[in-house]
Amino acid sequence: MKKYILFSILIWAFGANLNAQEGIFGKWRCTNHDGKVNSIVRIYQKDDGEVCGKVVRILKEEDRDKICTECEGDLKNKPIEGLQLMHGLQKDGNEYSGGEIINPKSGKIYKVKIWVDEDQPDKLNVRGYVAFFFKTMTWDRAD
């Protein structure tokens, strides 16, 4: 019985450690200003170390075919589902910063930094900012 309890504790600790090691990487449920989940974004690292984020799923089926009409350049008229909306992030201590994020609805580009909440490792803080003004959103880890 003692071996079973010890084994259970080790499995639980290993699982908690794996979740902590995931850090920012993985899939995140993105919420709108009303708190409603509208998409899933995958945060990943490229071979050169750059960290990016890509919309992997729009939850409302009727919105899945929407395109980024307000975007400029290479992103103009690209489907939002599949869009790389975040790029250029580099590790800076416990945060990733130095990148940009685009709002597909407005086409506006913001500087961005992201970090996992210290007390809640399944919460990702995403801060978009221009000069001194910023807004921080909290995304939840998706399974």
Rank of each mutant, 00 (worst) to 15 (best):
F25A: 09
F25P: 06
F25M: 02
G26F: 00
G26A: 08
G26T: 03
K27P: 06
K27L: 06
K27E: 13
K27W: 01
K27V: 10
K27M: 10
W28G: 06
W28E: 04
W28N: 05
W28R: 08
W28S: 03
W28L: 04
R29S: 14
R29K: 15
R29C: 11
R29D: 14
R29L: 15
R29W: 08
C30A: 15
C30Y: 04
C30N: 04
T31C: 07
T31W: 08
T31Y: 13
T31S: 11
T31F: 13
T31V: 13
T31M: 08
N32K: 08
N32S: 10
N32Q: 09
N32G: 06
N32R: 03
H33R: 11
H33C: 10
H33E: 15
H33T: 12
H33V: 11
H33Y: 07
H33I: 04
H33Q: 13
D34V: 03
D34N: 07
D34R: 12
D34Y: 11
D34L: 10
G35C: 05
G35M: 09
G35T: 06
G35K: 03
G35P: 07
G35Y: 03
K36W: 11
K36A: 14
V37T: 12
V37L: 09
V37N: 12
V37M: 05
N38P: 02
N38K: 11
N38Q: 12
S39K: 04
S39Q: 14
S39H: 11
I40P: 08
I40S: 04
I40W: 10
I40E: 02
I40D: 00
I40N: 02
V41K: 12
R42D: 15
R42M: 14
R42N: 14
R42K: 11
R42Q: 15
I43N: 10
I43H: 01
I43L: 13
I43W: 07
I43S: 02
Y44T: 03
Y44E: 05
Y44S: 12
Q45K: 13
Q45N: 05
Q45T: 09
Q45F: 01
K46F: 00
K46N: 13
K46C: 13
K46L: 08
K46G: 10
K46R: 11
D47I: 10
D47Y: 05
D47E: 14
D48S: 03
D48V: 02
D48Y: 11
D48R: 04
D48K: 10
D48I: 04
D48M: 04
D48H: 03
G49A: 10
G49L: 02
G49M: 05
E50K: 00
E50D: 12
E50M: 00
E50L: 02
V51D: 01
V51C: 01
V51I: 14
V51N: 00
V51K: 06
V51T: 00
V51W: 02
V51E: 00
C52A: 15
C52T: 09
C52H: 13
C52D: 14
C52F: 07
G53P: 07
G53N: 09
K54S: 05
K54A: 07
K54L: 10
K54D: 11
K54T: 09
K54F: 06
K54G: 13
V55F: 06
V55K: 01
V55L: 10
V55M: 06
V55E: 08
V56Y: 05
V56W: 05
V56K: 05
V56D: 02
V56M: 07
